[in-house]
Computed example of a mutant assay.
Amino acid sequence: LDHHAHDHTHDPGVSSVSIVCEGEMDLEKADMWLGNLLLERSDDIYRMKGLLSVSGMPQRFVFQGVHDIFQGSPDRMWEANEPRINKIVFIGRNLNREELEMGFKDCLLK
């Protein structure tokens, strides 16, 4: 048995948190929140990806981040009958779902 073949992706501390909410996202707010989050937690957040319904934008805004590198761009147009939702998935360790959910929902236009 080769004990060097241990696969670190199955580290028990790694989890994923996904958050879905409806509403219009304030892109500037979301950008700042995600930027700060990745700076503060870049060791813990391995990967992040998502889809935003941005106020005033007819396209879906998709983004992804790996550690502290974050990029996003408009994607295809929203379909007429498609529910405009915001979705974000974090993969990492020591993730606090409540904190992430509160921060994400705080970026919605009130």
Rank of each mutant, 00 (worst) to 15 (best):
R93I: 02
Q64K: 09
N81I: 04
M77S: 09
D75V: 10
F70R: 06
F61W: 04
R84W: 03
E82H: 11
R93P: 00
E82F: 05
F70S: 05
W78P: 00
W78V: 00
P58G: 03
I69K: 02
H67D: 09
K87I: 10
G72P: 11
F63L: 01
I88M: 08
P74I: 11
Q71V: 12
S73F: 10
E82C: 10
Q64F: 12
F90Q: 06
I85W: 12
R76V: 15
F90K: 12
G72Y: 15
F70H: 02
V89H: 06
L95C: 06
V62W: 08
G92H: 00
F90E: 02
P58K: 08
I88L: 02
A80W: 12
I88N: 08
I91T: 00
F61L: 08
G65T: 07
I91F: 07
I91E: 00
P83D: 12
F90A: 06
G92N: 10
F90N: 08
D68F: 13
R84I: 10
H67M: 06
R84P: 07
R60E: 06
R76K: 14
N94K: 13
I91V: 11
I69H: 01
E79D: 09
F70L: 05
D75A: 12
I91P: 09
E79Q: 04
V89K: 00
W78H: 00
I69S: 10
P74A: 14
D75R: 10
P58N: 09
R93V: 01
F61C: 08
R76H: 13
R93W: 08
